[in-house]
Simulated scan of single mutants.
Amino acid sequence: MSLRITLRVTTPPGFRVDASALLPATLAAMSTAEIERIVLPAGNDRCNVGDVFDVSRSEAAAESAAPHTGATLVIENAAPWLDRVGARMADGHLVVHGSTGDYSGFQMAGGVLHIEGDAGHFTGCEMRGGRLTVTGHSGDFAAGALAGDMEGMTGGTLTIHGNAGARLADRMRRGLVLVGGNAGDFAASRLVAGTIGIAGQAGAHYAYGMRRGTLLLTQRPMHLPPTFAEGGRGFDVFWALLVRSLADEIAPFSQWRTASLPTRYTGDLAVDGRGEILVVS
């Protein structure tokens, strides 16, 4: 049997709420009454789960092909005043119908978080593992680092079907980030390692201070950074493995073939020069 917990927003509180306590594994061990008594911080205010949500639990036969393990938590009628949804999540499956506020998936370590709407700033910030999907747009600093921290995303997969804001994957160290739309200024800035794919256009100053890692661009940019140089060929095996790993991801990344290699540029020569930009045309 598989446990499904549903939280349906019935009474918006009128202020922003920290939803980091609403995790599948945590709620699975609690009764409906206990879940309703959970206190959600909200700056100088606070509220109980039962004041905002209608809570229900149900048991269903587990599907053998389910892409996740553990309990499933569904948040219905979600709105941008819900911050830190899925923060520090380690396992289970969290589905959000609607949009979320800031810090969705903050320091997420495992499990599956699926947001069927838009997400605010710092989505997947300092993410460590698991899979986070946003079917809409996200704000600034997705997969990035908090101010003053040295590492952004260090593991997992973040997929944004729409546009991403500024500073996408700033200081990212490991993992995979795919954006189906455009990205704002300073995308892949100060990248240490990892793979970032942007299907639309990247804003100004992309790959600024890039040390290592890979930036995939499906559209040729108007201008290439002056601190990048054409990197030549000789990466056939790497490209074949990368295309295979993206086969189950969003288009156009899932539609690439190994027949033709992308154009490769290396840099940022101003800092280390071991990063690469692959332009698929």
Rank of each mutant, 00 (worst) to 15 (best):
L3D: 11
L7H: 05
R8E: 15
R8H: 14
P12M: 10
G14V: 10
S20C: 14
A25W: 09
M30K: 12
A33F: 03
E34G: 11
I35S: 07
I38Q: 14
A42S: 15
G43A: 12
G43V: 09
S56Q: 12
E59D: 10
T72G: 06
T72E: 13
T72I: 08
A78S: 09
P80K: 00
L82G: 02
D83R: 03
D83A: 01
R84S: 06
G86S: 02
R88H: 15
M89H: 04
D91R: 13
V96G: 03
H97P: 02
T100K: 05
Y103D: 07
G105C: 02
Q107H: 13
A109M: 13
A109C: 12
A109H: 02
G110T: 06
L113I: 08
I115Q: 01
E116I: 06
G117H: 04
G120L: 03
H121Y: 01
H121R: 06
G124S: 04
M127R: 05
R131C: 07
T133I: 13
T133R: 13
H137T: 12
H137E: 11
H137F: 12
H137V: 05
D140W: 07
D140A: 11
D140K: 08
F141Y: 13
E151V: 08
G165W: 01
M172C: 00
R173Y: 06
R174H: 14
V179H: 06
A183K: 00
G184F: 04
G194H: 03
I196T: 06
I196E: 00
I196K: 04
Y208H: 13
Q219C: 08
H223C: 08
F228S: 02
F228H: 06
A229N: 14
F235L: 06
F238T: 03
R244M: 05
I250K: 04
W256P: 00
T263I: 14
T263F: 07
G275M: 03
V279R: 09
